[in-house]
Amino acid sequence: MTVNEALFNYSLRLGDNSLILSHRLSEWTGKAPILEEDLAITNIALDKLGQARFLLQYAAQLEGKGRSEDDLAYKRSEREFYNSLLVEQPNGDFAFTMARQLLNDVFDFFLYEELTKSTNEPLASLAAKSLKEIKYHLRHCSEWIIRLGDGTEESHNRIQNSMNELWAYTGELFEMNEIDSILIKENMVPDLSKLKPKWNNMLCEIFEKATLKKPEEGFMHTGSRKGVHSEYLGFILAEMQYLPRAYPSATW
């Protein structure tokens, strides 16, 4: 695999993550618990969509086969998507959505912080821009986690159960393959294993403030690095891709 091919795949990994999480968050639009939160979640979804657009445009350019960001978003099948299993999990209740967001945002925070030092200029500049957004997303969801955890008995149980259930999707975030080794050698991307202690520490601090217990380590789901997904991604793509596939020449 060439550096260019590895970069293409890595951009898809990051881009798909943002795209699918954006789609999940957008499912809250119009039905979040309160108006203010509806706007907040929709804002986050739009930030994620902006990141996805940049990354898929960059991937399309790296590939050089004349595909556009839209082709990559709407005309790839499930097995060609590389987003984490975590972000494709259904929204559940509000606590579940916030728990999923926290686990992802703490990871993204440290990943994008490292990516700002990338020797690859497009990735470094995207990371610098996205990091500002991610910091706010992280602030928003961690404040929610603290309030839910330290709130009523019901809110505490809901957020604790969500965290316990989603924990099994966090092992995969740190998995690396050939793509990572090639790009680490070029100093383009960080070694994910080095992010894990920081990720762990930040989560433990938040859990402590939220009076939550850190979930126990156990079975971890895996597959997305090879394009193997949970049953949910197919349904997301069916909804997201229906229109451009049914009416390929449709425009706004």
Binding site: L35, E36, E37, L39, A40, N43, H140, E143
Partner: peptide, 10 residues
């Protein structure tokens, strides 16, 4: 804190 965030988002 949440008022500040809601104000920012709204």
């Amino acid at each position: 804190e949440m008022a500040l965030q809601n104000a920012r988002d709204t």
